[in-house]
Structure formats: structure tokens, C-alpha cells
Write a protein that binds this DNA or RNA. Structure first.
Length: 563
DNA sequence: TGACTCGACTCAGAAACCTCCCA
DNA sequence: GTGGGAGGTTTCTGAGTCGAGTC
């Protein structure tokens, strides 16, 4: 417990001591065997090492949808040609004439060979990986040994953006020690760069939490090596995030009253802010910063919504003032929703859309920084994203209260928990692609249910038969038989009910990802309290990793915790 | 002052990996 | 006993948010 109670540092200082080994560099490229060939225009062509390496990146992805996309192909070919020797550039002028299939097969086979390795060999590989983890995977921070999140540099490869990313297929370069900035404490054992190399820089900045960083060549942004969520540093931050969201609970009613008032403001900018805030609050939309056009996929959040992303319906499906949202959000995940809104919101939207093109900004006078400045003024530390955390957590708490039946068994209570979790995932629009195996496994489950139903029917008849026999004979043996058959029937019925629950759960979950909300939006103390209150073992809710991440909450929360 | 850029951090789903169960 | 497949877990790294600095 004391771990969470050490005093807080001042002035943006994050640590007093930080010692680590630096990043683990992924192995260098291993050339292809002589007999694995690249073909150009039907003829084998021996490539230079650098060209060959990049060719393998593409070859490995051959059966991925990415390689069928024109942008991906063009970006790849452009970047590949840049790395070729002039002789190669002279020959390789058309991607369509490049045949990577033999290289592709080589990697597929290699993968299978690795999977088929005897147990002892696999064990040996595992031990080697564990050794690397042991050596590079931990650091010392203020006297505690802490797990690092990502201690390996990212291997070179082809950039895979999400959605229609204009940079997909570009070459992501290999990270060398010369690219890496090390951050540690001055008096610690400074990590040694790999033999024959040096670091770009070693700095001693204890106002940041990262251990190492480098600049990535696709978007020219920084990448960091940071601590694992189980660390004290991250745990404390997480706790602060939820405490901030809890503070919103006290003022949210005032804020709601305020934005309702602002819907009628004479200043359009204020009205836009008030309508946007209504969406952020009611629909848990993200803030929506502007992004540089052509540099990333075309996605939006609340403030960056365009006219083309909403449709207004005075009447729809028996509801009034319906706004139909259809846009791509973070990670190009589609947000589609039809929402009945309050009349002034509807009227304002009509006004904001007047005389605009579909591609014009809906909130043309609004920026996230203007919105956040306003929020800061309403509550210390308040920003747009706090609403997501707040609404997610409060929804979980309310749903748990509404759905949990104390009479249920553990399985039934867990189903209620999942349903509450799911309500949040739907609110936050956390989606996943439907698992490839979904239809099949659903069918298997349905067959099981059908079989079980038959068994139940049979058992019912057996019971009846036994009862009839008892009526005739009135003997003790027949009576015992009735009891036996009834018991069997009951067991089968329970099994059937369980299968039905499973099927419902599965169906309702097929396109919903529960993990993101569980990990990032739901105050874990709500779940811990719920477990304690209903006698559910915490392991049924959180797996090992999650328990490590939420150690602070498991420590702190009692059964009467209220968000 | 405010638009723009940059740095540091959280949040995101896909894919790889692992485990356990059932035929 | 075993092999494979389903489902859970872990890893990976891209995509956001937001504050601060700059001009």
C-alpha cells in the first residue's frame, strides 16, 4: 500500500533516479539464401543487400490487402527505388514486373518450420527471449524495479497506416543507436551503445517519463520508450485521471446548464462551442483537433466535423429533431448514429450549415484550444477528453447498479458486468472487425444448443415416465428414480440456460471491443467495489496484466466506493 | 494575440502469440 | 495422447489529445 503513498514531487519533476540498459535493437537483416530469387520481367535478378531487404518487406505482405492498394504500391515503389543502386534503378522500372512470390514462400515456409520446431527448441527460443526481457525489459526508477512497456526499437518495414492513409507503403527506416536519445539520471550507470556505435545524445531530464526516444521518418514525429502501465508512475497518472473525472461529477450539472444557455448566445462562436460541447458530453465524441491535410487519413472528431458528416431530420423513426452522424473517427473507425437532440441544438445546426458546402467545417469558428480554454475556466484541469472518461465511468456504475441481480449466480453476475461494460463500449464507439471465425463458431454453438434442447426434452419424458411408474407402483425404488430423473433434467436445463447466455453474449459482442474502455475509461475502483460487494473474485474481471495495471485500485477501493 | 509547430503523453485496433479444450 | 482450432492475452505501433513554445 505504501507504494501509492510516497510523497508527490513538485515542479513537473517525475523522478529522482532513472537507470536502464537503453533500447534493445532488433537483429540486423539476414540475406536470403542463394536459391531464393527475385524475378524481374520473368528473369531472376540478384539484388543488392539493401534493395533485397526492402523487397522482403513487400514480399512478406503479399497476401495482405494492403499490397492490392494503389497508394501502397506507389509509395513502396517510390521509396524502394530511392534505395536501389543505379544499375538496379536502370532495370527495375515497373512494380508489375516484379515477382516476389518465391521470397514470399520462403518466409511462409520459414514461419511454419518455426511453428513445427520440437519442444526443446521452442523452449530454448523462449529462454533467449526471456533473457532479453530480463536484461532490457526493466529499469530502476526511484529505487523500484519497474517493467518497461516497449523496450525494443521498431523494426524497419513498410508503413501501415489505418484507413485510407496517404503514406501507406512508405519505407520505415531501421533505427540505429545514432538516432536514439537516451534519458536517465546523471549519476546512474549510463547505458552502453552497441559495439562500434554511439548514441545521438544522452540527456538527464527528470521532468519527462521516457527512457529513450527517436524520430520516426514517415511523419517525422517522436517515438518513445516508456514504462509499462503496471509501474507506479503510470498508475499514479491513471489514478489522477479518474480523480479529475470524478471532480467533473460535482460541476457537470452547472456546465450543462451553462451550455444550454449558450445555445442562445448572440455570439455564434459561443453557440458553436455550446453545441459541440453538448455532443462531447452526450455522445462522448473526441475533441477533434485539426490535422494537416494529405498527411494522414481523413478522420474527424467533434470540432472538426464537416457539414457532410451530419444529416438533419425534423422527423425520423417516430422521433423529432434527429441528427444522423456518419463519419470516420480515430483509426478510421466509422461512427454512425441517429440521435434525437434538443430543439435549440437542431435549430443551431441548421444555422451553422446554412450556405455551406458539404466539405466546409460545421463548427467553422471553433477550435479545440478555444473549447478547452473555456472548460479550463469552468473547472480546473477540465478538457474535452475528461467528459469521455466521466461519462464512461458513470455509465458503468449506473449500469452495474441497474443490471446486477444479487440472486444471480457468478456467471449471471458476470454477464451483467459484461453488459454494463458493453454499454460503455457502445457509447465510446469501440469497435473491432468481426472475428473471421465468428460465423463458424456461432454455428457450432447453435448446434450445441439444439443438441442440449433435445436432451432436455428427452429428460422431461423420462421424468414423466418415472412419475407414471411411481403412481402405479408406489414403491420406494420408483420414487427414488423420479428424484434421480428430476435432478438430471434440472442439470440439463441449467446447461442449456448457460449455453443460451453464452450465445447471447457472443452475438451482442461480435463487433464491439470491450478492452479499450475497460483499460482506459472505466475507473477500476468501480469494478473492484462491485467485485467485493457481490463476492466475485477479481480474477474473473481482470486478468493478470490488468490486475497489475490496476494494482492501485485493488489496493484502495472498498465495497462502498462511489465514483 | 493568435496561428502554428512540437513534444509528451494517452488511447486504439490488428496481429502475433499462447493456452486450453475437444474430437 | 495429440493435433488443431478457438479464444484469451500480449505485443505492436499508429492515432489521437493537449499544453507550451515560437514567431
Amino acid at each position: 500500500c505504501s507504494r501509492w503513498e510516497e510523497e508527490k514531487k513538485e515542479g513537473g519533476v517525475k523522478w529522482m533516479q532513472l537507470e536502464h540498459r537503453g533500447p534493445y535493437f532488433v537483429p540486423l537483416y539476414e540475406p536470403l539464401p542463394e536459391d531464393v530469387q527475385f524475378y524481374y520481367d520473368g528473369k531472376p535478378l540478384k539484388l543488392s543487400l539493401a534493395t533485397e531487404e526492402i523487397a522482403t518487406f513487400y514480399a512478406k505482405m503479399l497476401d495482405h490487402e494492403y499490397t492490392t492498394k494503389e497508394i501502397f504500391q506507389n509509395n513502396f515503389f517510390h521509396d524502394w527505388r530511392k534505395e536501389m543502386t543505379s544499375e538496379e534503378q536502370e532495370i527495375i522500372k515497373d512494380l508489375d514486373k516484379c515477382d516476389f512470390r518465391e521470397i514470399h514462400k520462403y518466409f511462409v515456409d520459414k514461419n511454419e518450420a518455426r511453428k513445427a520446431l520440437p519442444k526443446e527448441e521452442k523452449q530454448k527460443l523462449k529462454e533467449e527471449a526471456d533473457k532479453i526481457q530480463e536484461e532490457y525489459g526493466y529499469c530502476i526508477l526511484d529505487g523500484h524495479r519497474e517493467k518497461i512497456g516497449n523496450f525494443k526499437t521498431e523494426p524497419p518495414g513498410l508503413f501501415r497506416g489505418r484507413g485510407e492513409h496517404p503514406k501507406m507503403g512508405m519505407l520505415k527506416k531501421r533505427i540505429m543507436p545514432e538516432d536514439v536519445i537516451i534519458n536517465c539520471s546523471r549519476d546512474s550507470k549510463i547505458p552502453e551503445p552497441p559495439e562500434g556505435h554511439r548514441w545521438k545524445e544522452v540527456r538527464f531530464d527528470n521532468t519527462v517519463t521516457w527512457l529513450a526516444s527517436w524520430t520516426e521518418n514517415i511523419q517525422n514525429t517522436l517515438k518513445y520508450i516508456m514504462l509499462n502501465p503496471s509501474s507506479k508512475l503510470k498508475g499514479e497518472k491513471d489514478w489522477e485521471k479518474y480523480e479529475l473525472a470524478r471532480r467533473l461529477k460535482d460541476v457537470v450539472h452547472t456546465i450543462r446548464a451553462q451550455y444550454r444557455k449558450d445555445w442562445k448566445s448572440k455570439v455564434i462562436k459561443k453557440r458553436q462551442r455550446a453545441v459541440a460541447l453538448y455532443f462531447i458530453d452526450k455522445l462522448a465524441l473526441r475533441a477533434g483537433n485539426e490535422k494537416e491535410e494529405g498527411e494522414t487519413a481523413d478522420t474527424v472528431g467533434c470540432c472538426s466535423l464537416r457539414v457532410e458528416h451530419i444529416q438533419l431530420h425534423l422527423q425520423l423513426d417516430g422521433q423529432e429533431h434527429v441528427v444522423e452522424f456518419d463519419f470516420l473517427g480515430k483509426d478510421s473507425i466509422r461512427y454512425y448514429n441517429k440521435v434525437s437532440v434538443e430543439k435549440p441544438v437542431f435549430k443551431n445546426l441548421q444555422l451553422f450549415m446554412k450556405n455551406k458546402d458539404p466539405t466546409d467545417d460545421l463548427f467553422d469558428q471553433l477550435t479545440t484550444s478555444f473549447l478547452n480554454k473555456h472548460l479550463q475556466h469552468l473547472m480546473d484541469g477540465l478538457t474535452a477528453k475528461v467528459f469521455r472518461t466521466y461519462n464512461a465511468s458513470i455509465t458503468l456504475q449506473e449500469q452495474l447498479k441497474a443490471l446486477t441481480n444479487p440472486e444471480d449466480n457468478v456467471a449471471g453476475k458476470l454477464l451483467s458486468y459484461n453488459r454494463a461494460n458493453r454499454a460503455v463500449a457502445i457509447l465510446c464507439n469501440h469497435q473491432r472487425s468481426i472475428p473471421k471465425t465468428f460465423a463458424r463458431s456461432m454455428q457450432v454453438l447453435q448446434e450445441k444448443i439444439d443438441a442440449k434442447k433435445e436432451q432436455v426434452e428427452e429428460a422431461q419424458e423420462e421424468v414423466k415416465k418415472a412419475e407414471d411408474e411411481f403412481k402405479d407402483t408406489k414403491d420406494a425404488k420408483a420414487e427414488a428414480n423420479v428424484e434421480k430423473k428430476k435432478k438430471l433434467l434440472k442439470r440439463l436445463e441449467e446447461q442449456l440456460a448457460k449455453l443460451n447466455v453464452q450465445a447471447t453474449d457472443k452475438e451482442e459482442n461480435k463487433q464491439i471491443a470491450l478492452g479499450t474502455s475497460k483499460l482506459n475509461y472505466l475507473d477500476p475502483r468501480i469494478s473492484v467495489a462491485w467485485c467485493k460487494k457481490f463476492g466475485i473474485p477479481i480474477e474473473r474481471i481482470y486478468n493478470k496484466t490488468q490486475r497489475e495495471k490496476f494494482a492501485w485500485a485493488i489496493d484502495m477501493a472498498g465495497e462502498d466506493f462511489e465514483f
